[in-house]
């Protein structure tokens, strides 16, 4: 399963923000894959909002299906739009 990355970590500027699920609390979180700061929403993470103080201890990578189920369909839409934009840039570069 591919990782769902939504940007650069605002805390360490070295890691990527990854969407994960917390099975214990049955919710989605965003975590930096380097400094492992956690946020409860993509908006907070991307805008550099305060990270969670009560951190989850066991996490699994989320799928697009998990995002839809959790009501994060806006994010899915945004990511798909970004993906299409990237593809079109590469395709125009090939010509």
């Amino acid at each position: 399963m591919s990782l769902i990355s939504i940007g650069e970590c605002p805390v360490c500027r070295q890691g990527e923000l990854i969407v994960v699920k917390d099975p214990a609390r049955e919710m989605l979180l965003v975590i930096c894959d380097d400094c492992e700061s956690q946020w409860d929403s993509p908006e907070n993470a991307v805008k550099g909002g305060p990270p969670l103080m009560d951190e989850a201890e066991s996490l699994q990578d989320a799928s697009y299906g998990d995002l839809e189920n959790a009501g994060w369909s806006d994010l899915v839409e945004h990511l798909q739009h970004e993906e299409q934009a990237k593809r079109s840039i590469f395709q125009s570069g090939d010509r």
């Binding site: 650069e8 070295q14 990527e16 994960v20 894959d33 380097d34 492992e36 201890e57």
Partner: peptide
């Protein structure tokens, strides 16, 4: 232990910053 990978901190640091990784935008 990393909550995501389960590896300890030494493993985490070596994996992320032990060798050049062009998939990371910024990397020490």
């Amino acid at each position: 232990k990393s909550p995501r990978t389960g590896g300890d901190a030494a493993h985490h640091v070596s994996r992320n910053h032990g060798s050049l990784n062009l998939n990371k935008p910024n990397q020490g």
